[in-house]
Write a protein that binds this DNA or RNA. Sequence first.
DNA 1: CAAAGCCGTTTTTTT
DNA 2: AACGGCTTTG
Length: 696
Amino acid sequence: MPQEYVIFLLDDGVYPDSLNQNRFYKKIPQNAIFEQICMDATLNCDQREAVNTLSGPLLVLAGAGSGKTRVVTVRIAKLIDTGISPRRILAMTFTNKAAQEMQKRIASMISTHRENQPEISTFHSLCVRILRRQIHNLGYPNNFSILDASDQNSICRKVLREIRVSDASLKPRDLLYHIGQWKSRGISPKIATRDADTDREHLAAVAFRRYQDELTRCGTVDFDDLLLLTSVLFRDYPEVRENEADRFDHILVDEYQDTNDIQYSIVKSLSQKHRNLCVVGDDDQSIYGFRGSDVRHILNFASDWPGAKTIRLEANYRSTEAILEVSNRLIRFNANRYDKVLKAARAGGQKPRIEQFGDEEHESKQVVTSIRRDLESNGRQPSDIAILFRTNEQPRLFETELRKFDIPYVLLGSHSFYDRKEIKDLVAYLRVIHHADDEPSMRRIINNPPRGISANSVSALVEIATQRGVSLWQVMLDNEALQTLKVPARMSIRNFIETIRSLQQTFSENLELSTFHSFLSAIQYKKEVLRNSEDEAETEQRWASVEEMANVFGAYLGRKRKPTLESFLEEIALAESDFDDDKDDQLDRNAVALLTLHASKGLEFPVVYMVGLEEGLLPHGRAVAAEGPAIDEERRLAYVGVTRAQDELTLSLSLTRRKWGRVQEQNPSRFLFEMIGQADNPHDAVVKRETETTNH
DNA sequence: CAAAGCCGTTTTTTT
DNA sequence: AACGGCTTTG
């Protein structure tokens, strides 16, 4: 067989020194060398086994910092090395970042023909691709648009208003949460209604039905639908399922502890035939329960897949022994888990510090002072340092403080770019241009900039639309329906329809950067920006967002061989394109990272500051109120945080904190006591009793 | 119909 | 403290 693939290693990892010295094994012909380099020299025996177990169901229980990413990528390389065609391999990740990272790493080990790459994608983008081809089976339009969080919220609000639910009994946010939970478990409105225990839940279930009808009416789907509809498609259309399943011989799921029921069923559908399913994850790092992830999937893997092999990676190459000791002690407080104890490959190390401050301002000042010390006298680079926090309100103070001393920083993970008003407006326009039935977007722009279509007129039309079960756009096109409005409003709507139509024309004719600019002038957006700004500085700032949007568009056009408005919007909705390129650049350009604990998963930093270790914040107040498993998840979150640190870890807390303008007393987090061994561990008690009895 | 001003709520985490 | 929705005013 001609060797199409070339393998070489440029991966930083835990190589023995001898290997590190000449680690640019460029384009070494494979086989023997591959064995030698990847198998013997650079992997420990557990890792080697995980890489070598190429067929059948396999569970890799990878502890924090155990070299999971390397195992995954080397395993894929190995599969290809044994002659499996790359395109027959599917690797699923949960974030786009992880997918890109994996792609990059594999590309650094193996060069394959660009038409013949392993498919590495998130669940969401995989499902979008399937749905674009197949969703007509379920009666949705193929050009469905994807709802973002704020659209979801406004639909929830509308639905609740319609069924006259007062805000006090069920808030849009709560409804959204319920819907998310239901959808991630594949529960339909009907079943939700039937199984509702409380009045509140019943109400939510009724609203759920309406919400879903509303989506169908607008020809849109939400994030959860992408997965849910795919699983429905697989269930009801076996030929579709087989078609998709037949595309792959090997499936790999990263971060398996984060799968929800739907993702689980999709994975199962795709791999039940060949059973070559490798899942990798760490039950101790399951932190997405709030969006339906269920640790039980990883805990039950062995019984789900008879004959499955389990491999534990318990050596930790990331953190020092001192840090790991604290981490291990903390996570042992959780009950339902695989009992694994990470062993430090790096002995000794500095003990984690705990620092307590009077208020959150002092906390931020001191942390930044300490960061300055790291930079000035301890020889650290800004990019060596991370500040981790629980909620997104926390970083503000740290930002101001860092800015004060001109320390470069990046605030990671917040989608702030797409939260800006200008961006939202422009995206809404583009969505309407692409798919005028997209009602949430339509409502956003219909009178923005003001063009004489009042809110009253809009709601009158929406009412008709709801009654008829068609979209707002359909009603706007209906002359008869327009008769209910006053003449000026009618005229304005006709003008607006013309504007949209001509824009649709413009965008369908040619898609280039200039299209975007003529679009901006067509809607006179500059004027709108001016109108909304108090002063020149604000205008400038707002217009900068608009220009950035143009850049994103331009970058997209440059990247795609066959650009379409549809795929551009899709990238935005799934945040697929790394619009954070800028941020990554900054990260490369050496900046302190500020990120939530959730966003920190999978990353590592030599120096970590974990801040706000207080009851009510970590564990979060809601979790404290809910008790039980919710607290366990918070503990895992804390565990994820401490295991990010390679060399130095500082845990800090503030004894008071301002919330909604009021100063509140705070207590140190229970996790702190657990970490330093000043809390009783029920699980230790069990172990102790057992040893006592055996002794007697 | 648009702008200004008042009121009440809000924040857990994300694809 | 800050933002969004609603009401009043121009």
